[in-house]
Amino acid sequence: DEVTIHLGDKTIRVDGLDKELLEILKELARRGADEEELRKEIERWER
C-alpha cells in the first residue's frame, strides 16, 4: 500500500505504512509538523 501525505505544497509518499503510524503522521501534520519531522517519525517506526 502506498500512502501519499500532502503537506501544504509538499507531498510525501510512503510504502506500507502501519495504520497507527499513519494516524500519528496525520496528527503531526495537522499540528504543522514539517516534512523533516514526519520523516523522522517514520524512521523511528521502521526500526
Rank of each mutant, 00 (worst) to 15 (best):
I42K: 05
L28H: 03
L38A: 02
I24Y: 10
D15W: 00
I12F: 01
R30C: 07
K40L: 08
L28V: 02
E20A: 13
R13L: 12
L38K: 01
K40D: 06
E43T: 02
D1Q: 12
E41K: 03
R47Q: 15
R39S: 03
E36V: 11
G32C: 02
D15A: 15
L28E: 00
R13C: 07
D34S: 15
R13V: 13
I5V: 06
L28R: 03
E37N: 03
E2L: 14
K40Y: 04
R13H: 09
W45A: 07
K10R: 09
L25C: 02
D34L: 08
G32M: 01
L17S: 06
A29T: 07
A33V: 08
V14H: 05
R39A: 06
L25Y: 01
V14S: 05
R44M: 08
R13F: 09
I42F: 03
G8D: 08
A29H: 09
T11G: 15
L38F: 10
R13W: 12
L22N: 02
K40H: 05
K26E: 09
D9F: 01
R47C: 15
E35P: 12
H6T: 15
E23I: 10
G32D: 02
E36N: 11
E36T: 11
L21T: 01
R39W: 10
D1I: 13
R47W: 03
E23A: 11
G8H: 09
V14N: 03
H6W: 00
T11N: 12
T4W: 02
G32H: 02
K10H: 14
E27S: 07
R39E: 03
A29K: 06
A33Q: 02
R47D: 15
K19D: 11
K10N: 13
I5R: 04
L28Y: 01
D1V: 11
G8S: 13
T4I: 15
E41F: 09
L22D: 01
E43R: 02
I12P: 02
D9S: 10
K19R: 09
I42Q: 03
E37R: 11
T11K: 11
L7R: 02
I5Y: 00
R31W: 08
I5H: 03
L38G: 00
E37V: 13
R44D: 13
E37W: 06
D15L: 00
L21W: 02
I42M: 10
R44H: 14
K40Q: 08
R39Y: 11
E23T: 08
D18M: 08
R13N: 14
G16S: 10
V3F: 13
L17W: 10
H6P: 10
L17V: 11
H6L: 06
R39V: 05
L38Q: 01
E23S: 08
L38P: 00
W45N: 04
E2N: 11
E46D: 09
R31T: 12
E41M: 11
W45Q: 04
E37S: 08
T4A: 10
T4H: 15
I24N: 05
A29M: 14
L22Y: 08
G16P: 06
R47H: 15
I24W: 13
E36F: 07
H6I: 13
I24K: 12
G32T: 01
R39C: 05
D34G: 13
I5K: 04
E20Q: 14
E43V: 03
E43M: 03
V3E: 13
